[in-house]
Structure formats: structure tokens, C-alpha cells
Lab assay of single mutants.
Amino acid sequence: DDWEIHFNNITIRLHGVSEEQIEELKELIKNGAHEEELRKWAEEVNR
């Protein structure tokens, strides 16, 4: 699925990401992940 997530003036566009991966991302954000951590997560997902 395609997703677009907005938070802290950042837009993250995701393509072909599962519901499970979105839940992981929500947890990262909820736990106060920094932009660098989110980038690493996105790189892993996009492999």
C-alpha cells in the first residue's frame, strides 16, 4: 500500500509498505524517534 504520514512538519511517503510496518513506524514516532532513526527505518523498509 501507499502511505503518506505527516508529523513535525515532515512528510514521509511510503510505497508498498505493510500495515505491520506502519505500526512499527507509529511506535518509533510515539517513542520520540529522531529524524535519523526514521530515515534508517525507511531505508530498511525500502530494501
Rank of each mutant, 00 (worst) to 15 (best):
W41Y: 04
E43G: 02
K26N: 10
K30D: 04
N46W: 13
D1Y: 15
R39W: 10
D2R: 11
E44I: 04
E35T: 04
E37W: 02
E19P: 13
D2M: 14
W3L: 08
E19W: 13
I29K: 01
N8Q: 12
H34V: 11
E36M: 07
D2C: 15
A42V: 14
K26Q: 06
I22E: 01
E23D: 12
L38I: 15
I22M: 10
Q21L: 12
E35N: 04
E43W: 04
R39N: 05
G32P: 00
F7N: 01
G32S: 02
G16R: 08
Q21R: 08
E27S: 11
K26F: 14
N9S: 11
T11M: 09
E44K: 07
H6Q: 10
E37K: 04
K40W: 05
E4A: 09
N9I: 09
E36S: 11
D2W: 15
N46S: 07
Q21K: 12
G32N: 02
I5F: 14
K26P: 00
A33R: 01
E24I: 09
G16Y: 12
G16F: 12
G32W: 01
T11I: 15
L38T: 00
N8D: 11
L14W: 06
D2N: 11
E35I: 14
H34P: 13
E4P: 02
W3C: 14
E23S: 09
I22Y: 06
L28I: 07
E23N: 13
E35A: 08
W41I: 01
N46F: 15
E24D: 06
L14Y: 04
I29A: 02
Q21E: 06
L28C: 01
T11C: 05
A33K: 02
R13P: 10
I29V: 07
V45R: 02
E36Q: 07
I12P: 02
L38C: 01
F7A: 04
E36Y: 08
F7Q: 02
E27G: 07
I5W: 11
H34N: 15
N9Y: 09
N46A: 14
K30T: 05
R13F: 12
S18L: 05
D2F: 15
N8K: 11
H34R: 12
V17R: 01
H34G: 15
G32E: 02
V17Q: 02
G16L: 10
I22V: 08
F7T: 06
I12Q: 06
K30W: 07
D2S: 12
Q21Y: 08
W41D: 00
V17L: 13
N8L: 08
A42D: 02
K30R: 13
V45G: 01
G16Q: 12
W41L: 01
E27K: 10
N8C: 10
E23H: 11
E37T: 08
D2Q: 12
W3I: 12
K40A: 12
W41C: 02
H15E: 08
D1T: 14
H6F: 11
I22L: 13
I10F: 06
V45A: 15
E20H: 09
W41V: 01
V45W: 10
E24Y: 08
D1L: 15
V45S: 03
T11V: 12
D1P: 08
S18P: 03
E20G: 11
A42E: 10
E20D: 07
L14E: 01
R47N: 15
R13M: 13
S18K: 07
